[in-house]
Amino acid sequence: MTLTQQARTARAAGATGGRPPRGGTGMRRRQTLWAYAFLSPALVLFAVTVIYPMIRAFQYSLYRWPLGSAPKVFVGLQNYRQLITDDQTFHRSVWNTLYFTVVSVVPTVALALAVALLLNRPRLRARGVFRTIYFVPVVTSLVAVGYVWKALLEPTFGIVNTVLGWFGIPGPGWLGDPGWALNGIVLMSIWRDVGFYMVILLAGLQAIPREILEAATMDGAGPWQRFRRITLPLLNPSILLATVIGVIAGLQLFTQVYVMTGSAQQPAGGPLNSTRSAVLFIVQNAFGPLEMGYPSAAAFLLFILIMLVTLLQFRFVQRKFEY
């Protein structure tokens, strides 16, 4: 039987609701096997570097698991119970993480959208230069950026407070003040990430068909209405992507806090736990006392949190629009 005959037979079988002939199934199976064969290197790598460590981490989370030769003691769900009910530092670190995520992602995406809209104007000159300027912080080392911002936010002689002083505004203590330290980190993160989301949103803007906007203009829609009724809905997938990436990155906050609040003289996460993030909590609880069980449980709770937040985003932010 030729391939064309097989296809005809298969279509006929489909039309009558019968099962496709065995020959077609065999071919499909062979194709599936080949697909798996081609996928296998990636799948094996994924299994070895992601799935297996996750299973081991889950195993650790049920134990008191000191590194080295000490005995590992099965404690069941005790680590989870302690984290959820007793550990105020963990609660604070989760709160800090959520606060950072909300307070940094929303303005970053909004600012990135504003910049993208400006850069999307066809009559703007030197557009490439502006794009590069906005994108430079993204490709700069986060550690280097952290150190620079630490100096900028220095309360007595730092540039930020000096400029605020010119306008008669007494600058806060920033990283030395528990009430302001996390906001200082938020400020730095917004400055750094705007360029990244700007690129995503600019790509989204350029994918919007010009005809739709022109049709709306001819129908009498003003700039705000075009933005509100056409641009924003059609940009929704890009906004969703930027938000999901931003939220996941926000929930994994670590480097900024580590660089900007820690030193040989001071443990990161201070002052008074005001900047301790969930990931920092996990690292400090793992490699301070060299104990894997408790921080593994915290890592799993963070994993669940990220999963839930991402699902909620997909549920509430994603909208389908067609024109």
Partner: peptide
């Protein structure tokens, strides 16, 4: 001294 004076220096 103050935590807000020359923070981190």
């Amino acid at each position: 001294d103050s935590a807000k004076f020359l923070t981190g220096q």
